[in-house]
Design a protein around this nucleic acid. Structure first.
Lengths: 214, 214, 214, 214
DNA sequence: TATGAATGAGTCTTCATTCAT
DNA sequence: TATGAATGAAGACTCATTCAT
């Protein structure tokens, strides 16, 4: 998300270009978030930034492309947030629990800071075109694969019970996803502190996977 | 699903009208399912049925309206399926488990029989307009309320542990939802039999809510 | 050009459709002829007919397509005019001469009746797109092939001298073409009667091919 | 062609300016030749030269203007080539023939060296705007007038027969033109040596104008 | 009821040209 | 002179909806 591409310095001109791009992208996020992809007009986006219609096309190929880019940004944000998580040694269920809470809170923070993008993602990213549908499908496949293998490892370490790990992973993703929708997108659970929400998720996950180990 | 107002008999003319309506609606489901709401064209729907463009408007107010109606059908289908479920006495966790399996399989059956509508629902029902967003929000609120109160009762009967029941309900919904997406919509878990999938869901739910009662 | 497709009768509805199509096509010819392809607006065409913008697209795929169709009509008109010509026995140069005059006058008539299309053809048919360039190239190839073989036959019958017949054909086409441009398109030679113009062409052709037969 | 005002030397600065102008013009010829006037973009031209978009406008008024200038260059090239021809005394048809061959080959050479411009001229110079259409019309009028008067003189010297000299000139121009298109632009007659092509043209012209003098 | 031709508002996109630096 | 970012006018095309027959 930051513009520090390949950590290199950008020339002043390049910097200005990046800034302008970002400015437009932010405006697009706002407009998409308010009206949805189909109802959003390029004219609204440029008006938001205060530039001419043509300027938009100097930075993006079109409405579809910028939407795709925004979506990719979001997916990358989520993946990198999760990937940034350094699991501790995880030799006890307690350690596992506190680790999960940590990553859960981290993700919550990030998504809360990007509520609009999160909302766009859930509300209609699938409805734009086939390409994005595929992108999202792959995103879920990645998550699913990551979680499945993670669960398998936990099982080998005797931390969770034997289950159909793919189904387990699906359930876990759905569980988290729904809570995010309620909490982040709809602000429905707002009276409940994030900690408690995450706590419930983790406890549920842990208990749900305990069964016959005990 | 049928518009059998007051369960009464329909005159031949009314019956014919109903049939035609249904025919168009089925075609619309097919077209929406294949192309998505925005890419779907009224012309495709009528071609599918083999009637003229104008005929469509004799039965439906327009594209948005028929989509809304299809969505409402779906929501009603889901709600009525769940509502049709007569919980047994549920005095033990075993009874609860088998009951949940029963309703789970029931729902799976119904959704599998209506895969296209299920897909439409998940993929983009939110993206059409504000009105439908509200409708769907209310649907979830209803589910949430039902589950929350259900969970509370179970807790009172000592069947499940004390938790934040709203969060618990959210999690449960998401869990089920995600699995439905994978299983029904994407056909992703197809090698796993429905029984096993449902079984995993129920076990997970039960364990996840067990914690400190034992 | 006539709508008597495959000599079959058209139903009333089909007939009306054909009429409307033709009406639009005539308007398009007028607009293209006045403004040229690029400067011509679809909006001008429909205004000319007195229908809405969308109506245009019920009958034609777009601006490019209708232009192509008009051009094809023209090429077919020319080819069929020439093809309609039944050469007489042609055993003497006199017979050849009078025959050539006949077809020349025929062609002149047809082109004069379709001045606008003729003008469009010469002025910019090449400039529209590659596809049309190819079409036109093929048209010339056809003419060239026809003429070349025709000239060869005349030579075999001892009516014209031995020459490079392909070059001869090219020259002949160009000669005729230029005169058409002056006479039909620019109205430049208008004081000269068509008969005289054609006469000059024929005499020139005949003398130009006489050389060593005498 | 060059802007060498008063045939004087150009200062270094002026020289550099001229060079840059020419560079851009050459690039424009290339781009126009490849894509045609309408499809050609100023951005392509400047990219070809390696300068910025704005630079183009330091040297030319715009796309239309540079095209016009290129076209004028071409017309001047043709006219000056013909004008450069010093007719010999021309008292016999043999002398006339060899003279015509000479100028024919000269013209062929020049056009072959400027194939791209030649192609631009034939393909779509007419389609750009009214102004150029007029320019081209005048060019043809000039040629026509030159040829007409030339033919008249030849007739007076008893070298060619009496004909409608304007029509004759038109025919001659068309004849040459078509052959040029085939030979220079389309490379269609490439297997035939230039000499033969020109020879055919001259012979045809001479025979075509012989008729009753003999 | 059924038809399907006609409507026309609505939006994305292109690209020649300008101008502040 | 050179740059290149910004401009903004202009137009093709789509498609849900209407309505005369």
């Amino acid at each position: 998300m930051s513009t520090s591409d390949s950590d290199g310095k950008l020339s002043k001109r390049e910097q200005r270009r990046e800034d302008r791009r970002d400015e437009i992208k932010q405006a697009a996020i706002k407009v998409f978030s308010e009206h949805g992809y189909h109802a959003a007009k390029v004219s609204q986006i440029v008006k938001e930034v205060g530039v001419a219609q043509g300027t938009f096309y100097l930075y993006f190929e079109g409405k579809e492309q910028i939407f795709g880019e925004i979506l990719e940004d979001f997916l990358e944000l989520v993946v990198s947030t999760i990937a940034a998580w350094e699991p501790s040694d995880l030799d006890t269920r307690e350690a596992l629990g506190s680790d999960l809470k940590r990553v859960g809170l981290l993700l919550t923070d990030v998504l809360m800071e990007n509520r609009e993008m999160t909302g766009i993602f859930f509300r209609e990213s699938q409805a734009v075109n086939q390409e994005l549908q595929t992108l999202i499908r792959e995103f879920y496949e990645t998550l699913l694969a990551m979680l499945t293998s993670f669960n398998r490892i936990l099982h080998e370490r005797g931390l969770i019970a034997k289950m159909n790990f793919r189904v387990l992973s699906s359930m876990t993703i759905g569980m988290v996803e729904r809570v995010i929708k309620e909490y982040v997108v709809h602000g429905q659970l707002e009276d409940v502190p994030a900690e408690e929400v995450v706590d419930n998720l983790v406890v549920y996950y842990l208990s749900g996977t305990t069964r016959d180990i005990e």
